[in-house]
Amino acid sequence: MAVYKRTYKSYDGPLTPAWSRWMIVTRFSYSRLVGFKTNLFLLACLVPAVGFAAYIYLAHNAAVLKSFGGNFASALSIDGKFFFNFCTFQIGLAYLLVAFTGPALVSPDVVNNAMPLYFCRPFSRSEYVAGKMAVLVYLLSLITWVPALVLFALQSSLAGWEWTRANFWIAGAVILAPLISIAILSLIAMAVSAWIKWRAAAGAVILGVFFLGAGFGSAINAVMRTHYGSLINLSQVLNTVWAGVFRQNLDTGLDVLDAWNALAGASLICLWLLFKKVRAFEVVK
């Protein structure tokens, strides 16, 4: 009798259903990534939301405002611009969070040769990517569109049905716009993390993508006398897309359609880079 027949018994306990298997990766990455410092940072990121909430409250309390004198009340208007500003501020914080937590997302798996272990199981590459990405999407959502939605609810409860019906699109905008940025930020972070194993360097590259992109974009614009250089300036591209979503009439120097195309291009490049590394291969040191 072969030895394995005597001693080997395969696992026959309950299995995680296939549809939710990708969340296993999320769970484990999350518990490794998010410690005290990250939680503290998340908490700090909610402080501005309190300020904005106070602003909404003030705008609806004429009595308080009168004590300041003047016609202060008319100056405080809550509209698309207000939510646009709030989300822009929060996504800036999200960017910092990504630069600090993102680098440790995929690189440990590459460096420690964990990829073959994932993919020798009934677990696909897309599931891996989805699982890892969910960590960032979750963290970033907590400090961007979730508080924005709470602010919207606060405003609509104070301003009444009329305002809410007229401005219902804002609720969609505060979810959609941050999600677009979150998606692109997470993709960049994961692609960088898959390729650069040294955390410090990966963080620098995530920051550098934006700074160098902005710089090089301006250089192209100046030298080539065009505005297409701005297409590699991701913060400008995102700003343009956001202005469209929030129905703001901003002259960002870019066409909204071009901006969407640039975003799609950037996402595709990131996905390509990512899937080149998310494979069952071994790093020979």
Partner: peptide, 21 residues
């Protein structure tokens, strides 16, 4: 003039800077 701007604001401060890093 454009070259001068490019050189000071982009080449020195960003490219050479990061290259040296």
């Amino acid at each position: 003039l454009i070259y001068a701007t490019f050189f000071q604001f982009f080449y020195l401060r960003l490219l050479i800077f990061f290259g040296c890093v």
